[in-house]
Design a protein around this nucleic acid. Sequence first.
RNA 1: GCUCGCGUGGCGGAACUGGCAGACGCGUACGGCUCAGGACCGUAUGGGGCGACCCGUGGAGGUUCGAGUCCUCUCGCGAGCACCA
Length: 850
Amino acid sequence: MSSDRRKPYPFDQIEPKWQAIWDERQLFHAPNPGEKGFHPPKPKFFVLDMFPYPSGAGLHVGHPEGYTATDIVARYKRLRGFNVLHPMGWDAFGLPAEQYAIKTGQHPAVTTRENVAKFKSQLKRIGFSYDWKREINTTDPNYYKWTQWIFLQIYNSWFNPETNRAEPISTYRGTDPDTVRLAYVADVPVNWCPELGTVLANEEVVDGKSEVGGFPVVRRPLRQWMLRITAYAERLLNELEGLDWPEGIKLLQRNWIGRSQGAEIDFKIENMEQRIRVFTTRPDTLYGGTFLVLAPEHSLVDLIVTEEQWPAVREYRERAARKSELERADLSKEKTGVLTGAYAINPATNEKIPVWIADYVLLGYGTGAIGGVPAHDERDLEFAKKFDLPIVIVVQPTGDEPAFGFTGEGIAVNSPIINGLTSAEAKKKITSWLEERGLGKRAINYKLRDWLFSRQRYWGEPFPIVWENGRHRALQEKELPVAPPPLDDYKPTGTGEPPLAKAKEWIRYSDKANRETNTMPQWAGSCWYYLRFCDPRNDKRFVGEEAEHYWMGGDKPGGVDLYVGGTEHAVLHLLYSRFWQKVLFDLGYVSKPEPFQRLVNQGIILGEDNQKMSKSRGNIVNPDDVIDHHGADAFRCYEMFMGPLEQMKPWSTRGVEGVARFLARVWRLLMTENQAGDWELSQKIKAVDATKQQQKLLHATIKKVTEDIESFSFNTAISQMMIFVNAVTNAETIPLAAMRKFLILLNPFAPHISSELWERLSAKFRDAPGDVTQQSWPVYDERLLVEDEVEIVIQINGKLRDRVRMPIVATEEELKAAALANPKVQDRIAGKAVRNVIVVPKKLVNIVVT
RNA sequence: GCUCGCGUGGCGGAACUGGCAGACGCGUACGGCUCAGGACCGUAUGGGGCGACCCGUGGAGGUUCGAGUCCUCUCGCGAGCACCA
């Protein structure tokens, strides 16, 4: 007696069989222009997954959700005659491999190789139709050579505000190009994570902790490489407009970029030459400004602070510096601050107002200084109350809310030159007034900060930069790639000096020059990988011109036609790669300013207990187990049948059984088991015409599945196929041609079983040459879908009372007459007045009575 | 606190521009077939009532001949931002 249960159909045999065939025949390889097998008339379709970081834990059920969706689309588009680019690769630089190396001494490259092999075999088991000839790995020198090359293009260019685009640094006419490069070095307060021994980008810090690992992050000044992404703030914001992305993601990016419009106003300091510049979105409240506040770190503080205030200021600054980001941002705490002892002049009122420092003002935003308008700003009000500062009302609400503490728009009061104007008008007028006097100007501010681009890590791309006499200098293209040095000890130094600094020989570039020892962040490789997929083996260029033009759409709309991934990259990868794409576009290297035309986010898959899957909860579902039990086709179909792709939804073991049962029914529809226990083709299959009803259902199914794939409603597409199979199951004879069409519809969802059944049909009937993957997508005939009769709903006062079958050609008058003559209606409306009869052709009649 | 998104049976979810609420699947019940095997097949399945009928899409209003769908308010859940001047 065998312990393993008999399989409802032999997926364990047919799935490996077809995977091997696909591999061997390179069936899913997409030829590039000029290559063998390339057909110019075929339209292109670029469908991309967010490539994974190959972790040691292997694939979890969340990964294949998006991958299955894109695979269905890829297979569908091929059947529709597209040349489909559907690639996969590995985003393999990153912390886990490095931390494993620190623990065990095993080189990250070895760990990466092992993990990639594991991921790849898991993906292959699911039957994804990737073009494996295009596989890329960000840690491959042939790949990161070009990541470094792109960095050099960024380094060697600047953003020309007049043309609003990046240009080669040679076009810069100023004295020091290093001040305008898109990649530059700056001493900035950075997010330093002691536990990880590295700095992190703003985007990588969540609630004062590292996104990876959740370790505390503190502010610390360090000299770091930055990328001038802020130069692109406006374009990154505006060009979101034309993208077919979920509104939620667009909104996240808009908020992250955080554009606000207002004015910069200069305040004279009493008895000093310097002026304090503040940024405000409400210049119309200038008359209500009764104090100024500078960020504690503001550079003017040293100059303006008075002798007697020095001790207090120094102490306050030290305390602020010691605070973590989290403590500083704690909203529940009371406002703090100290007087500098200096006074400024409000340019509108000419009054003397005190200058304070307080940590609620951030150095990083605006000018690092604000004008305090306590009557119309919550924070300023809180501050003014705490320190007993004057409060002057200058905006009168138009509603009946109190003016005190009113932060909305209203009418200007107590403001001589703008009295009576609406806030919008007042803003314009006061700003012009300031501009005329050289006291201020219109200004736009962004929350977006420049991208902190260096990391103190081993397992990342080294910068193609050397230092000589304290100045940085780019390497030549021919010196790429710059490989990381071999090291025995990968540990962070803890001082902020990168581990590469330990490689004494590697650092020494020449007698005079040393190599840069920072590495690039993990995002670097993923910023442009979609471009490399177009031409992954090119050793002359990061992507061949013709290949880029073809796959990214050239002058036609497109780019990556479909990009599927999680929302977690909304302000990280998706913002960074848009930025790189724009730089490359400006410099003439690529044909599109935006990389991803259409973006779809898959929702998270929860555990069976409705909780987030996690090791500690013990609710993780392993795809390998599911495939062992039910096969890859059932796994794929269940991932899609669970519910809408974008939605968060829980895993259900029972649910998998349901779809597995469906596939088994498909199998048994065409196959029967003989005495010996072998599967053979069912005798019920005949090369006969389908019945009228079968024909109608088939065409309804073609229509529904086609439309549902186009609209990403994979769950309802599967429902419709279930309805079809349920209906055909009881038929005496099974019409061959209809089943052929059905198998093509099923193929994108369940490629193995549909391939096998197709082949078995071909062995007997020889009516359709080739594999199912080589067929073309069925077309439905609208004429077959129209009914002769329809069911008309009869309502009285909007409530369902009866249904009658009527010819589809029935006129409104006929429908109305039939409804009124209906016995149930007669009973109900007896003695009542019919006030109105609404007729919706082919649908319903609604009788309105009193 | 602010900004988005979402609330439909015992469960996952269907329902195109307002037009038969609950497709499909799970679960459950009964029946069949069987070596009672957690396999397979069939039938039923929103709630209430013996019944004709009545009630039902988080809650309260509104628009409409007609609302799960549109509008207003409200409650709950999820996500994002969080002193951004």
